[in-house]
Design a protein around this nucleic acid. Sequence first.
DNA 1: AGATTTTTTGGCAGCGCTACCAATTTCAGT
DNA 2: ACTGAAATTGGTAGCGCTGCCAAAAAATCT
Lengths: 325, 325
Amino acid sequence: MVTLAKVAEAAGVGESTVSRVLRNHGSFSRKTRDRVMEAVERLGYVPNRIAGTLASAGSRLVALVIPSLTNIVFADVLRGASGILEESQHQAVFSVTDYDPEKEEALVAAMLAWRPTAVMLAGFEHTESTVKMLRASGCRVVELLDLDGTALDLAVGFSNRAAGAASADFLLRRGYRRIGYVGHDPDRDTRAAKRFAGFRETLGAAGVPLVDREIHAGASSVESGRSGLERLLARTPDLDAVYFSNDDMALGGYFHCLAHGIPIPARLALFGHNGLDIGRVTPQPLSTIRTPRVVTGQVAAELVVADAPSQVVDLGFELIEGATA
Amino acid sequence: MVTLAKVAEAAGVGESTVSRVLRNHGSFSRKTRDRVMEAVERLGYVPNRIAGTLASAGSRLVALVIPSLTNIVFADVLRGASGILEESQHQAVFSVTDYDPEKEEALVAAMLAWRPTAVMLAGFEHTESTVKMLRASGCRVVELLDLDGTALDLAVGFSNRAAGAASADFLLRRGYRRIGYVGHDPDRDTRAAKRFAGFRETLGAAGVPLVDREIHAGASSVESGRSGLERLLARTPDLDAVYFSNDDMALGGYFHCLAHGIPIPARLALFGHNGLDIGRVTPQPLSTIRTPRVVTGQVAAELVVADAPSQVVDLGFELIEGATA
DNA sequence: AGATTTTTTGGCAGCGCTACCAATTTCAGT
DNA sequence: ACTGAAATTGGTAGCGCTGCCAAAAAATCT
């Protein structure tokens, strides 16, 4: 293996000189620079960041602990973050919790062992032990895509509660009164649960009851949205609008209606959440709320890179009227 | 910061004893084990893997360099790989190339600085310099989702060429003769280009010409599939079947037909590639080819973890008849 | 030319851990 | 109790790099 010492020897200079040249830090003459670079090229030297990190403290590693990769939402956040991190010479490390707080705890512990600059997590719901570790670690913590709770350090996203409320408000203003809900596992996906809570609260405040609901036990998917709506309608045929836990679910519902000739939104209105691209290309664009997923990742990364003080950044959301409600 | 030395002191034992207990390696009495663990708990010690790796060589870091996170395909591979890696105490590190070989080169260099156990890349098309670095690094290399080319070390996936050929064969057997293609940037997505090549070859062998094609310059998306089909049909209205570069594109085409009342497959047949879940929930399930994406990630990770000898693993693919062709 | 400042350079002590080896303790077996 | 083997333990030399400091070289000024 080629080490810095070998490069130094080959170039006929000291180790620290090579180190300075490679990091372009401190001073050195043009001549030695060329000599060093020549040796680096010739030997095919690749610096060892493990050693570099150990010697200098800053790891420039950012840990992303996300609930799922199936859900595009987190892939979007990852994408936003990794773009910014790359620009500033940081490395993204990630793992997937499957929406399981215990697993999150284990993964955070594993991540902390790499002494990351920052750890990014989804939401505010963590085990006690996770919080304790994070606090003790001294590294920056960013909680993403949720604002309804208390932040540990940095938080970037939007209020799910408010998004749910805005969705309800929209449906009410459109005159829908017999409203149902098709959702997925609320214990795991606490952000979806918060949206639903905000949604019901707003309905309640308007004196409109939630007529019926259908909860799929597993993760959200197009198929569970489809079958969920099917079951809901079988039980309560006279609904005039359905709120879905997210766009994947809503698309499933939309396909169900298409397949069964249920006129949308005349006979039944559909409302989703997330504003996925695909929902804008369907024959009728999906009525939904567009969430700032990529930007959330970007802003989170920027804050970490800049070592910004603790703060909560509300990126808001945007209601897309669409044509399904 | 709590270090191993402090734990050793607190527990009244030597450093190496703590190290052995923590790694559960070598021998130690139950009594000292308890004493060490008590100190670890009390001080909230988290081992430093940076130091550990430097001291012991094996990093247990696996680098994933993928073209895109927008395309679910790679998120699936990531998911498959990260599941297996986690089980065996490895860490996934990733970065995104945006289908740019130059960027891939830069990212591979950055990854190699972490001395990963293995580097996983998409496909066989890499710059000369990338190949050189990879070779020199001594770490395992896995090339994913492509078999049409020469592997550097390990390769896991399926033949895109064969998938394209199978798609053409299917359409021909169904009797379609006026066939068109809607695709995306073939210079970037070389695997899509290989599918298209296999597709045309098979058509050609049957004496059936490819009537027309529409290539979108950017990345694949539902919207570019929709607009691509729209343009294709405007130019060549009498097509009876269209092959798409992937399911996202095909879904866009499907939506276009739905919106314009074009009967499927009576008037126009559609065929995609990937076998995404969503394509099975549309009113008419999409005719497509299901690719082993998650399994590709899993097998790749297993091979790396087991330090298997160089080999090529063909996971094959499965044609889904669906109802759109 | 000599003195002083500035730039460039090399040496070396860690960073926190693991691997190896030698020292110590424990445990059987006589 | 005594010996050899087995089980435990601690000491210490790195892993490859960076940061600090002092030495050397070059540049600038009397």
